[in-house]
Design a protein around this nucleic acid. Sequence first.
DNA 1: TTCAATATTAAAAAATTGTAAACAAACATA
DNA 2: TATGTTTGTTTACAATTTTTTAATATTGAA
Lengths: 226, 226
Amino acid sequence: MAQEPKNLTILIADDEPDILEIISFNLEAEGYDILTATNGNEAIEKAKSHRPALIILDVMMPGKNGFEVCKLLRINPDFKDTIIIFLTALNDDSTEIKGLENGGDDYINKPISPKVLVSRVNAHFRRIIRENGSVLQVGDLVIDREKYIVTSGKEEIILARKEFELLALLASKPSKVFLRNEILSNVWGNEVIVGDRTIDVHIRKIRQKLGDDYITTVKGVGYKFQ
Amino acid sequence: MAQEPKNLTILIADDEPDILEIISFNLEAEGYDILTATNGNEAIEKAKSHRPALIILDVMMPGKNGFEVCKLLRINPDFKDTIIIFLTALNDDSTEIKGLENGGDDYINKPISPKVLVSRVNAHFRRIIRENGSVLQVGDLVIDREKYIVTSGKEEIILARKEFELLALLASKPSKVFLRNEILSNVWGNEVIVGDRTIDVHIRKIRQKLGDDYITTVKGVGYKFQ
DNA sequence: TTCAATATTAAAAAATTGTAAACAAACATA
DNA sequence: TATGTTTGTTTACAATTTTTTAATATTGAA
């Protein structure tokens, strides 16, 4: 059971300390980083400040209930990739349906087996890994994010770290236009401040190595791959 | 309950004809296209030939069981985005865990309320739409905000940023008349001050590229789409 | 018909990106 | 440690595209 750290954060919101503890314990043992909240407003706050990958929400909580928390978070596009699981003792179909219709990704009834909960959480993350596998293949380009290698046909192309990360970001969603802001926060991080032309220069270096056809400029907006 | 077609195909595999029928009926009423199979091998065949977006698998079936079907499909990267839901009367935790660990995205116990099943299926698709951003489709025009692409039929139309945003605004509520003020505050923002003719010029450029039929002038009021 | 509102056009202005070169920092090697 | 090499960033300017303005023509509702 002692697991390697996964570097994935889960926020658990429930007003019953016992539940909070048992779930925390089990998910921690699985290698997740855990945050907790005991009411709706605290959950929203911690969600915004820590950006967890998954949130487990009790439906009945003081202040804002789980459904309200979910709705408020879903309005913000920053949480569009966040998995939200409802957890509740309200064991009837119409509540479950309401939860799923309010933007929940899963709904689990109490009392719950910790093993099943862990298993469901794992399944959600497995899906994400499955969908964005570490090897990206677009046309004759193969981008291996684990090995940091890009090959075109049989030829291996050497990219420096920033070049690679920039390419990998753009290639992670082909055709999607990445705004300069998005590129900066993903490749450089939110604290780092770099000059205006830095992105352009890196784009140019990638184009020099791969050819001009892969990355398209959308003037005034950003760059896209393919 | 009578729904518009969603152009999403669901494959249902179960050896009990009654179950097959009740699930098919409910999902069809929701607007999904339904395929059925009564054993594991048939399920694999139909999955490969029709590429459904979601597969509901009974665990206990003649020939290959649901877990085996799932494992075989998951080997093939073509099915990495396919949602697989297990459905079974084997109502114990260890089977559920096994199902999720074998590549299932969800696990539902029989007997099941058709409404809950439909709701879970919808939730999976809603998540995909949420993550991939949705496209605006009006007549033969497709406006993809994320990709910054407008297509008319098969032809891609290149629009500059302001043109794109203006069109996207008008198309977001077809036949609503947008006042010049509304257009200014949405596309230009409230601080920016631009001359009176700026909007007209942009409208004209869009008309040049799309044709005169999409945007109508309502003299003295504003512009509307379609 | 009148006349303010809109269309159209061309040209100016502004914004954005491309590029080369210089520099600094990190890394590798002898 | 000294030296050379690679990587990352900045700067300055050119090239390009987008956006706005301004000037004139046309439209359509009162």
